[in-house]
Design a binder for these strands. Sequence first.
RNA 1: GCGCCUCUAGCUCAAUUGGCAGAGCAUUUGACUCUUAAUCAACAGGUUCCGGGUUCAAGUCCCGGGGGGCGUACCA
Length: 470
Amino acid sequence: MMDREIPFRFEVTNSASQLLSEHSDLTEGGSSGKTVSVAGRLMLRRDQGKIVFGVLQDSTERIQLFASEKNTPDFEIFSNLHLGDWLGVTGEVIKTKRGEISVRVDSWVLLAEAKRSFPDKWHGISDTDIRYRQRYVDLWVTEESRETFRTRSRIISLIRNWLENRDFMEVETPVFHPIPGGAAARPFETHHNALDIDLFLRIAPELYLKRLVVGGFEKVFEMARVFRNEGISTRHNPEFTMLELYEAYADYEDIMRLVEDLVSELALEICGSTVIQYDGRELDLSTPWERSSMLDLLNEKIQTNINLQTPIEELRKLCGDLSVPFKDHYGSGKLILELYEKTTEPELWGPIFVTDYPQEVSPLSRAHRSSPDLVERFEAIVAGRELCNAFSEVVDPDDQRSRFAAQEKSRDAGDEEAMVVDEDYLRALEYGLPPTGGLGIGIDRLIMILTDTQAIRDVILFPTLRPEQE
RNA sequence: GCGCCUCUAGCUCAAUUGGCAGAGCAUUUGACUCUUAAUCAACAGGUUCCGGGUUCAAGUCCCGGGGGGCGUACCA
């Protein structure tokens, strides 16, 4: 088929799903008297000699095509179409003698030829390499995959509407950062030629979003693609989507209520219930979620009574006893966090808000109002994984400066992920940041939970892979 | 990075202790006027991921490399 024979456009009047629902009352062998145009890919073909049945798949559904030597122009060519070919078909909606709603092929046009062979029409594609590398094939062949990505799109749209209804404003902040900030992670580096400067792809939009609160935008959010130069796993992709939001005059307890409301409403909308299944296990997202402090959970789990006043030697010994690896430059806060992450967090299923982390490991979180060696920070554990990280923000520039200084120290001690001082951010704080609650949610992980998928690659259209070799 | 598993036709999968590389679907050709993964008949389709080695003989065993998966580490 020559390129010049492929039309430049085709007027579609109905989707397959529309036709199926609108004509469900047709009787067997009956016709609707209604002529429609549909388009899509030919998925199956059953050649009967003088009649041919086809199955056309568009973005909504599959509908049967009914072609006959009598009715269908170029019948011989039609009956030799390849699976995977794109067709535009015009004809009357009928129901066959066997009760299948069909479009009678009164005229048709080839819209694209599938020059590569169709995957197995029954088994589809099971090779994950092909599913991830050639997502176009996966989407065309695998209905569950199409459904997951439709749901992803809906979830993001629902989140956006939900936030806008609460007067949050969506903003876009730079992807190139002169100083990587807002999280502890290794960044990707790049270079701008005209300015002759090194830049980093953002690891979090946090510091820019808080600058906007300083500027007077009291409720802002960003669906931020962020980049972290780290390992790849079923829960990690080097680029992923993080929702960050900041709300002036709010604290971390307000943010907890926001998170549980948002997630439970999404579950209701997407799954039809706030009680859902994940990985064969029940997950009850109904509000309110459990709240428990990190130290309480840890002490209960390992039957101790430690806190930040506990002598560091004792904490190190405890790490040794529980075979939790640590480094010499770890302070008490970091040791406690390691203990929690290795012994306690893996057992949590959630949903639960784990609150009040050590200051040492939370350089952007404000000191706790009633126990100043802790900070007002929480992580939500949902279906056994960290879903979000949030806190009452540090608002005092002097406090923030000394937090950065502490980070510098641990960077010097060998922590490559410690934060770097951002003088412009400090300058912004000097102009005044009101009390502010902030939140980061891993959107891909949230989508995994709501779609009951076990690998982050199943919810990212084009996950990062090693390039194919010649 | 480390450990385990895996790679055979376009796709999905076979191949006994090391003994002639096979099937279904797709493709090609033919038959068939209501099929539903249509059916039936026939043809064709291979660097068994790559490179070495052992052996009379390697898809199979050994070594090295590559892709993929899982686990682990890293990811506050």
